[in-house]
Amino acid sequence: MAGAKMGFNTKRQTLWGWILISPLCLGLTLWVAFPMGLSLWTSLTEWDMLSKAEFVGLKNYITIFTEDELFLKSVRNTLYFTVLSVPLQMIIALGGALLLNTQVRGKRAFRTIFYLPSLIPIVVSSVMWLWLFNSQYGLINYLLHSVGLNRVQWIDSRHMVIPSLTIMNIWNVGNIIIIFLAGLQGIPKDLLEAVEIDGGRYWHKFRFVIIPLLSPIILYNMIVNMIKCLQLFVEPYIMTGGGPVNSSLSFVLHIYNNAFKYGKMGVANAMAWVLFILTLLISLVIFKTSCHWTYYEGDR
């Protein structure tokens, strides 16, 4: 209808539509569909990028689960990091946003300061934290020591390296705070006032108004951050090289090593597919269970 009004017939309109979105179609083919197909094919071969690829079927998938001890270790490390990071990020971001959403002075200044770390490239923050975590000359241990606490080995310790990376990760939680804050500001005032009139405390507002209305945003950020955490790479690559004793060897770092250090393209691609399916599964579980705790206005 609109097309006819504009003096365009539908055919021409369709043609223009496809012309305008052609970069998207090409992009999806060249940078998504084709690489994924290629990756799937490569995962079924033995290939070092120099000689000819040799088809081996599912051998790579079997190898990584049965013979590669580091693979399961890298999965465990990555899951540990994710399970530690994501809930802490959500809680701290929500707390920060709630505090900023009260009548505090200097709200803008706080918002700016909280966001600053999110601006810093991961390489820079890795180098910076490498120095802060230094067990002898790092600021953190120095402060701990000066208040009479024991020094911690941070990234030099097998047990502390993943928690250390988590602390780093929480440092740049500011962008989530800003997203939550915008969500909080969108909550209708009359709903909160209704709770007050009914004699409700802050807890009731939180439990029955704020959390339900914010839940879609929490869900979205949880998934986005989970995907990010599962792809942990730069921090261990720069700071520890996966050590000590492979205790910070992340999934992606292991994939990278296999592909570019050991020249096992097939194995690396098989691992990438396992990571992909794992990510998909976890997202699916979160989505499926989310209907119990998320609330969409349209459902009323």
């Binding site: 998207l24 999806l28 060249l30 940078w31 998504v32 084709f34 690489p35 994924m36 290629l38 990756s39 490569t42 990028m49 998934i223 995907i227 599962l230 792809q231 790479f233 992606v252 994939i255 592909a259 393209m265 690396a268 691609n269 990438a272 597919w273 990571l275 992909f276 990510t279 998909l280 997202s283």
Partner: peptide
């Protein structure tokens, strides 16, 4: 389809992109 790519872990595609 475009929105769907937001859910793809970017690092998974990096090796095939390198090959490409």
């Amino acid at each position: 389809l475009s929105i769907g790519t937001l859910m793809l872990p970017a690092y998974v595609q990096l090796i095939p992109l390198f090959i490409e």
